[in-house]
């Protein structure tokens, strides 16, 4: 086994900050939705908006990071091995079969993860951000008065935002569970905290070079 530095500093910061913000946005958001009472409606709205701006800023940084480092390539979907990965989760995992996809520095995500995260990045999060911004900013103070954009279907915007939130929570639950499916229960968690993960020994220099040329 080899200690490999797999999650970089910003990546970990981005991940945990995003986790924190999404949990907080869900808490305040579902209070605004009327699902429960905790902060009080007024505070929930205030906090939700502050967290939303925080989230948008974080996304801006994350996008910059993804593009400048080339990490965005991690999310290019692949259908190779997808059946093997599914098989692993449905059968193999119970028999202590090995992971069908090997994690390396250059390919951290298995095909299912690639698809899921890509879906989040290009569908769910953009929907949440755009509907959120519309709902938040269609009215704004200007001069001595308040101006509004005429937004038809405010209710549709709100309902889409709610739908996205439900999907994110379902994702969150499965995510929490699936991180326990590493070599042992805490492997993945530890990796996301320290950045280092013990990866297979036979991952040698040649293989890395091979993969680099494949990616190109």
């Amino acid at each position: 086994m080899n200690k490999v530095y797999i999650y970089k500093g910003f990546e970990r910061f981005w991940h945990w900050m995003q986790a924190l913000l999404i949990i907080f946005l869900a808490l305040t958001g579902f209070e605004i939705h009327g699902s429960f009472k905790f902060f009080g409606f007024e505070n929930a709205v205030k906090f939700h908006i502050i967290a939303a701006y925080g989230f948008i800023i974080l996304i801006a940084f994350a996008m910059f990071w993804h593009f400048t480092t080339g990490e965005w390539k991690q999310y290019i979907p692949t259908f190779n091995n997808i059946k093997a990965q599914l098989n692993y989760y449905i059968f193999g995992i119970f028999k202590n079969a090995p992971h069908p996809t090997r994690k390396t520095q250059l390919s951290k995500l298995n095909p299912l993860q690639r698809l899921t995260y890509l879906g989040l990045k290009i569908v769910v999060i953009p929907i949440m951000v755009s509907t959120g911004i519309l709902y938040m900013l269609y009215r704004f103070p200007q001069g001595e008065g308040i101006r509004s954009f005429v937004v038809a279907g405010l209710d549709t915007i709100a309902i889409l935002h709610t739908l996205g939130a439900f999907i994110l929570i379902a994702f969150f639950i499965s995510h929490l569970y699936l991180i326990t499916t590493g070599t042992n229960i805490f492997t993945n968690l530890k990796a996301m905290i320290t950045g280092y993960e013990d990866l297979d020994e036979h991952e040698n220099h040649d293989e890395v070079v091979e993969q680099i040329s494949e990616n190109k």
Partner: peptide, 17 residues
Amino acid sequence: PGRDYNAWVDNFGIAAI
């Protein structure tokens, strides 16, 4: 917000969770 919701979306969401 807080008063209104779409019953389909809420039911779907809760079922999904």
